[in-house]
Design a protein around this nucleic acid. Structure first.
Length: 423
RNA sequence: GCGGCUAUCGUAUAACGGCUAUUACUCCAGUUUGUGGCACUGGUAAUCUGGGUUCGAUUCCCAGUAGUCGCCCCA
């Protein structure tokens, strides 16, 4: 055996969730699922392991992504396995598997952990969690409105106000018609323009114009495209629908691209309006045949995804993490005066636990004063000291560490005292 | 895959190339043997790894490793 010490660091690009981190994570997840369920969405999940073909069949463009940016390995049975990098193929597989028995439209959500093998940087890790919400089986634009409204309320329920973010909307089919009308017909060229538009806010105006002229091979045409892209007064049913619902921090942005190739209609992103952190908070859109690779009838849908890393980042920069989630939820601690009474403390604790009172025992070797000091610091509300006197008399003193008050009585009286306090 | 920046006790930090490597918080023990937060006293604990320059390196140079930020990519 080598004597080299193991590192206490977590694996590259993944996070440990110590209790204080887990409190934040749980708060985010709970808010996500409460909001999705308030819209009638049902939760689903699947394994993190998927056959590698699921991602390969999406098209040759994705090959690089699968080969170089995913965790893919061969199992002991010579199967190629991938740690899911996104949820959409999985949910498409599940929907396609049961499409004859599901009553459309259906609303599903999930909070999967997703993996990608790449160099970690700000806001991008190797494992992250993502809220995924989709409505399948309707082409009605109201579904698009509802999905965006759900995204919007998810942020509001996390404490955001509409001024903190901006909703940018575009439509892939509209853009396609626009380019066709300008005489740009080649899908490859349109794709290049879309990719360039995605980078428009990252590069200078001059760089953008030069690159665009190069793609369309025509400076006049490039200027014409830019003029059309910059028109923000597009009358969109989705935008108008959102306004009817009171959601007004919306702009129609023809430069909006989104990386995913499978979007076919409405696409949208929510941007943090904080100038120090101009990032996309979430994004989504409409797709018209996600289940094509499984055969059968096409299934349409609209959905969005929202990551835990960018969400937490957003909450931190806007100072939106509630103080209350950090507090210790333990109600009571039983503190034996001596180590030999530890088992007695455990027995007494079990009586309180039967009454759904969250009870810990303080069974360390520290001195009594130190134990109480530690409990007070950790935020425990009540303590009961048990020594031989208490065990014999079956009368205990309940001490409230927050109010510094005491009450002596039998088990039943103290249970109701604690329960009253919680109300 | 490419580039910038960084690396000292658990955390955060200090140290013209030269004493036993500083300070704060945390942790442990005590002042206080069955009753908390304060105060005081004491204690544990660190120069990422490997080379080089030098009488001497935490400090300068090179490589590696790790972290971080950006590029590429972004499902």
């Amino acid at each position: 055996m080598k004597n080299k010490k193991l590192s206490t660091e977590s694996y590259k690009g993944v996070r440990d969730f110590y209790p204080e981190d887990m409190a934040i994570q749980s708060y985010i997840f709970d808010t996500w699922s409460d909001t999705a369920e308030s819209f009638g969405f049902q939760r689903y999940d699947a394994s993190i392991l998927e056959p590698a073909e699921l991602y390969k069949s999406k098209g040759s463009e994705n090959e690089e992504i699968i080969n170089e940016q995913s965790y893919t390995f061969t199992d002991r049975g010579d199967r190629e396995v991938t740690l899911r990098p996104e949820m959409t193929p999985t949910v498409a597989r599940m929907i396609a598997g049961r499409h004859r028995e599901l009553h459309f439209p259906i609303r599903w959500y999930s909070i999967p952990n997703l993996f990608r093998y790449e160099r970690p940087q700000r806001g991008r890790l190797r494992e992250h969690w993502q809220l995924n919400c989709d409505i399948f089986g309707t082409t009605d634009y109201i579904a698009d409105v509802e999905i965006i409204a759900l995204s919007y309320h998810t942020l509001l329920n996390l404490g955001a106000t509409p001024e903190m973010f901006e909703i940018r909307i575009n439509d892939r089919s509209l853009m396609e018609r626009t380019y066709h009308a300008l005489g740009i017909k080649k899908a490859e060229t349109i794709n290049q323009i879309t990719k360039l538009n995605d980078r428009r806010r990252k590069i200078s105006d001059k760089e953008y114009r030069t690159a665009l002229s190069k793609i369309v091979n025509d400076e006049v045409l490039a200027e014409e495209i830019i003029m059309i892209l910059d028109q923000t007064d597009e009358q969109s049913d989705v935008v108008l629908g959102l306004q009817e619902l009171g959601i007004t921090n919306v702009v129609f942005d023809k430069s909006l691209a989104r990386g995913f190739d499978y979007y076919t209609g409405t696409i949208f992103e929510f941007f943090d309006t904080n100038k120090e952190n101009p990032r996309a908070l979430l994004g989504g859109g409409r797709y018209d045949n996600l289940t094509a690779m499984f055969g059968g009838e096409p299934i349409v849908g609209v959905g969005f995804g929202m990551g835990d890393v960018s969400t937490r980042n957003f909450l931190e920069t806007h100072n939106l993490i509630p103080e209350s989630i950090r507090s210790n939820s333990t109600d009571l601690a039983i503190v034996p005066t001596d180590q030999t009474l530890n088992l007695e403390a455990e027995k007494l604790a079990s009586e309180f636990r039967k009454q759904k009172i969250k009870t810990i025992t303080s069974i360390g070797t520290k001195k009594l004063g130190k134990k109480i000091s530690d409990l007070a610091q950790s935020g425990t509300t009540f303590v009961i000291i048990v020594g031989t006197d208490e065990i014999e008399s079956k009368k205990y003193t309940l001490k409230n560490l927050q109010k510094n008050s005491e009450k002596t009585g039998k088990l039943r009286q103290l249970i109701s005292e604690i329960k009253n306090h919680r109300k």
